[in-house]
Each structure stands twice: as structure tokens, then as C-alpha cells.
Simulated scan of single mutants.
Amino acid sequence: MTINIPSDEVDATRLAFREGMAQLAAAVNIVTTDGPGGLAGFTASAVCSVTDRPPTLLVCLNRSSSVAGMFERNRVLCVNTLAAGHEPMSKLFGGSTPQDDRFAVGDWVLAATGSPRLTDAVVSFDCEVENAVESGTHHVLFCRVVGIVHGPEDEEALVYFRRRYHHLK
């Protein structure tokens, strides 16, 4: 058997992978938690559905991040999908800003799990972490959804593609 490899195919190196992932558009989310481990939040695009029976999301979290231990201890989180006007908040939660300062921006309420929920998110998924698997540099969190709050239907979503923010209606 002969396999023809296209001339634009490259080896799966770390750099090639990162460049390829830049071509994968993704929703921008702020993932939050609160509990015995403390109040924390981070910006994430590595969020996806797993199943609707029971409703379950997958969230990836870098094990070396300053918030990883807080999420591990709290075992609850809320995935807040950002709207077009939330770009500054995405940058704030994606940087080195202290946790308390991050939550000083935006309108937050507590979800049923005690995790902060952004009141003007496109959608928020309140979750309990059921399982965590280590893969490479990250924790892959399997999160059972216990509550969902939908935002305004006419709101544009914030997406990340080719290392830039875009709006999607």
C-alpha cells in the first residue's frame, strides 16, 4: 500500500501543534470557583461538551497555573461563556492580576455550587467536578452540569481564532 503525504503536511511538533490550534476557533470562557480552596478564575478556550446523559462538560486546566490547587480542592466550577463586550475581562482573567482584583470587574452572583456566575454571560454552566485526569501539562476536568443560565439571545459571542478575538452572532 502506498500513502501519499501532502506537501503541506508537517511533523506533529509542539510548534506545529500550537500553530494548528491557532486555526481552531473556540468560544472564550471564564471558569470560576469558590470554596475551601479559595476564590479563583481563569480564561479558557479548552471547554467542550462530553455528553447530555448526564449533562457533562470537559474543562482543561494547566497543572502549573496559580489556580490549579484551588479548583482541585473546591471540586466545583462555573463555565461562563463570554459575550463580545467581555474582551477586557477575558484579558484580565488570562493575566497575572490577583484573584480578588479579577472579580472586582463584572457583575457576579453565586451559582448553586457557590461558584461565581457572570450575570451577563452568553450562557453559564454551574458544575461539580466528577473526575480529573492528568494529561501532559494539564488536568482534564470532567464536570457534571447541575445548573444552566442562558443570557440574552441577541448577544454576540466572543471567540478566539488566529490569536485574535472575534465576534460571532
Rank of each mutant, 00 (worst) to 15 (best):
A84G: 13
S49G: 02
L57M: 11
F103I: 05
S49V: 00
N80K: 11
L57S: 06
G114T: 13
A84V: 10
G69H: 12
E87D: 10
F71A: 10
P88E: 07
A104E: 06
R75L: 04
R102A: 12
L61N: 06
V79G: 02
D101K: 12
S90Y: 13
T81C: 08
F93L: 03
S66P: 05
T113K: 06
G95P: 00
L57A: 07
G94W: 13
N80P: 11
V76P: 03
C78K: 00
S66D: 08
G69V: 09
R73T: 15
V109F: 14
S115W: 02
V109H: 14
L92D: 04
S65L: 00
A84L: 13
L82M: 11
S64Y: 08
D52N: 14
L57E: 03
D107N: 12
V105H: 15
L92K: 11
L57K: 00
L58S: 02
L58F: 05
S115A: 15
L58N: 04
S64R: 14
T56R: 03
L82T: 06
V105M: 12
P116R: 07
M89N: 07
V105W: 13
A111D: 12
V105S: 15
L82P: 08
Q99L: 10
R73K: 15
E87S: 11
R63A: 04
G106V: 00
T56N: 00
N62D: 13
P88M: 09
E87M: 08
N80M: 10
E72Y: 05
F103M: 08
L82F: 09
V109C: 13
L57G: 04
V59Q: 04
A112D: 13
A104F: 00
R75S: 09
R53W: 11
S64E: 14
G95F: 00
V109N: 14
P55D: 04
A111S: 13
T56Y: 01
R63M: 03
W108E: 05
V109P: 09
T97M: 10
A104Y: 01
C60R: 02
L61C: 01
L110K: 14
G95L: 02
T51Y: 01
H86I: 01
S64C: 04
T56L: 01
L61M: 10
L82E: 08
E72H: 12
D100W: 02
D100G: 09
A68S: 15
E72F: 02
A83V: 04
R73W: 11
T81M: 13
Q99T: 01
G85M: 07
A112C: 03
L110D: 15
M70K: 12
D100T: 09
G94T: 09
E87H: 07
E72P: 01
G69K: 03
A84Q: 14
T113E: 05
A104D: 11
A111L: 09
S115I: 04
M89C: 05
C78L: 05
V50K: 03
A68N: 05
P98M: 11
K91C: 06
M89I: 11
C60F: 01
N80G: 08
L82N: 10
R102Q: 14
N80C: 05
V59L: 06
D100S: 06
E87I: 03
G106M: 02
F93T: 01
